[in-house]
Computed example of a mutant assay.
Amino acid sequence: MKNYFSVLLLVLVLAGCQPSKTENMEEKKELKISLAEWSLNRAIRGGQMSNLDFPRVAAQEFGIYAVEYVSQLFPDDTTDKGYLQQLIDSCDRYGVKSTMIMIDHMGNLGDTTETARKQAVQNHMRWLDAAAFLGCESVRVNGNGFGSVEAVTAALVKSMTELGDEAKKRGLMVIIENHGISMPDGSWNFNSFSSNGKYLSNALKETNHPNVGALPDFGNFAEYDRYQGVKDLLPYSYGISAKTFEFDENGEAIQTDYKKMFDIINASDFDGWVGVEFEGDGVSEYEGIKKTKALIEKYWKP
């Protein structure tokens, strides 16, 4: 009997010294692909499909079961719950998840005029409510303003802190995309505050809010190096907008070296949604989406 317990004790000790299967296996990051609605903006604006068709098209045409809405593609800028319920019903029908609403034209969150800044924050509230109703994880906002870097940063930190507090109540993230700004003459300028990775990452660091993050877009860094910009924002990134414009004969993106970009992403601990966003006109929107999805799948390494 004594020998039996000695052997049993030895077995237990040796078993305790062995690494578990979990410890032997490296954690693998799951590739989560979503479809940015802007990829189909021409079809929607041209009447070939509607915002309500978006979940069906994502699932049936592209095999993508997560979608990112764009506020300006909602008819009449509506956030009516009856309409939103139709979107939920469409998602349920096709097994699609609503991940995000990209909010545009609601004012500059980095506006250095306090009255305008506060109004911009207030303008976003109904879209936070809409995103929560749809079961989204986040809303995308624009973090720009006119003025010195210091002044815009201070205004943006205020706005993002206020929106982050509201997002927390709704179980949402508020994420900033490097994006352009509407100029006083009505033109669009991509060379804005948020398109500088250093400026935007510093503002996010200063905000330091658990419900505030970033959505780096491959194509919107303007004069700032896009690879460095993604590096700057990855520590704060809740999602990635994998934008394409044109493709070469091998199906590679012309404007962005996808291997180089995904080497940077793969080396990080990012594990959020990777959004397909085609914005070119050399091929159809459908073909551009398929080519972009193929590139993501090619270069993502778990």
Rank of each mutant, 00 (worst) to 15 (best):
48 Q>K: 15
211 N>W: 04
56 R>H: 07
201 S>H: 03
292 T>Y: 04
86 Q>T: 08
273 W>N: 06
64 I>T: 10
144 N>A: 01
111 D>S: 13
204 L>P: 04
1 M>E: 11
132 A>E: 14
63 G>H: 12
289 I>T: 08
157 V>T: 00
104 D>W: 08
194 S>W: 01
248 D>W: 00
119 Q>E: 06
38 W>Y: 13
136 C>D: 15
173 M>H: 08
213 G>V: 06
131 A>M: 12
126 R>H: 02
166 E>C: 05
60 Q>I: 11
26 E>S: 14
11 V>Q: 10
60 Q>Y: 06
216 P>I: 07
59 A>M: 08
262 F>S: 00
27 E>V: 15
148 S>H: 13
301 K>N: 14
130 A>I: 12
221 F>C: 03
156 L>N: 03
216 P>Y: 04
286 Y>H: 14
10 L>E: 11
175 I>D: 09
293 K>R: 10
87 L>E: 11
264 I>G: 10
257 D>R: 02
260 K>Y: 03
57 V>H: 05
60 Q>G: 05
139 V>R: 02
128 L>H: 01
138 S>K: 06
226 R>T: 15
73 L>K: 01
208 N>E: 05
156 L>T: 02
243 K>I: 01
254 I>Y: 01
188 W>Y: 15
72 Q>V: 15
216 P>E: 03
26 E>A: 13
143 G>Q: 03
11 V>D: 07
94 Y>F: 15
291 K>R: 15
12 L>D: 08
149 V>W: 03
63 G>S: 13
206 E>A: 02
8 L>F: 08
79 T>H: 02
243 K>P: 04
34 S>M: 05
282 G>A: 12
131 A>G: 11
55 P>E: 09
125 M>Y: 12
72 Q>S: 11
42 R>Q: 05
81 K>P: 10
103 I>N: 06
262 F>A: 04
35 L>V: 06
243 K>E: 02
6 S>N: 10
267 A>Y: 01
211 N>K: 04
84 L>T: 06
185 D>W: 06
243 K>G: 02
20 S>V: 09
71 S>K: 01
53 D>G: 10
279 E>S: 05
183 M>K: 12
133 F>R: 07
138 S>L: 09
3 N>L: 11
256 T>N: 00
189 N>S: 15
69 Y>A: 08
230 V>D: 04
111 D>C: 07
62 F>A: 09
115 T>H: 10
129 D>C: 03
224 Y>D: 02
247 F>Q: 06
157 V>E: 01
155 A>L: 00
252 E>Y: 13
100 M>N: 15
29 K>M: 05
262 F>R: 01
12 L>G: 08
112 T>V: 14
32 K>I: 01
235 P>Y: 10
208 N>D: 15
215 L>Q: 07
